[in-house]
Amino acid sequence: MARSSWRTGVMGLGLGLLLSGCQTLGLAGSSPDGAIESGNQFVSRSVRGSQLISRTLPASLSLRRGWQMAPPQTLHPNADLQAYHPGQAIFLVVLGESKTSVASGTLEQQALQYLQIMRRSFDQVTSPESRTGVAQISSYPAVQYAFQAAVRGESVAYLHTTVEMGEYYYQVVAWTRADRYPANADEMRAIVQGFGPD
Rank of each mutant, 00 (worst) to 15 (best):
W175L: 11
R131D: 01
L115P: 02
L19R: 15
Q148T: 13
Q148C: 07
L61W: 15
S50N: 11
E167Q: 15
P128W: 10
L18I: 05
I117Y: 04
L52V: 07
R55A: 06
R120H: 12
V47R: 08
V134I: 15
A135T: 15
G21D: 09
T132L: 14
G49E: 07
L61S: 00
L112T: 04
R7Q: 08
S31V: 04
R119G: 05
G166L: 07
F147L: 07
L63F: 11
E108Q: 15
Q68P: 00
R152Y: 09
R189E: 08
D179M: 00
Y168Q: 01
R189V: 07
F91E: 01
P197M: 12
P58R: 04
P32V: 07
S104V: 11
S139Y: 14
G105M: 04
L107F: 13
A28N: 13
G21H: 13
E187N: 15
Q124T: 09
Q124L: 10
V10P: 00
P197T: 11
I90K: 00
G96W: 13
E108N: 11
S121W: 08
T132D: 10
T74M: 10
L13S: 07
S121G: 09
L159Y: 14
S44N: 12
E108T: 14
Q148Y: 08
A79K: 06
R45Q: 07
L17K: 01
Q68E: 10
Y84P: 01
V102R: 06
R45W: 04
Y84C: 00
R48H: 14
L25N: 06
P32A: 09
S60T: 09
I191W: 14
G105N: 03
G34E: 02
N78M: 11
W6L: 07
F42D: 01
Y145F: 15
A149W: 13
Y168M: 03
M118H: 13
A142E: 03
E187D: 15
A83M: 04
T126D: 01
S98Q: 14
A79S: 08
V10Q: 03
M11P: 01
T176H: 05
W175R: 14
L115M: 12
Y140S: 09
G34C: 00
A157R: 06
A59L: 10
Q41T: 02
T106A: 02
Y145I: 02
Q68N: 07
G26F: 12
N40T: 13
D186K: 12
E108K: 13
L92I: 06
T132R: 13
S46H: 12
G29F: 10
P77Q: 08
Q109T: 06
S127G: 01
S46Q: 09
Y114E: 05
G9Q: 09
T8H: 09
G14Y: 03
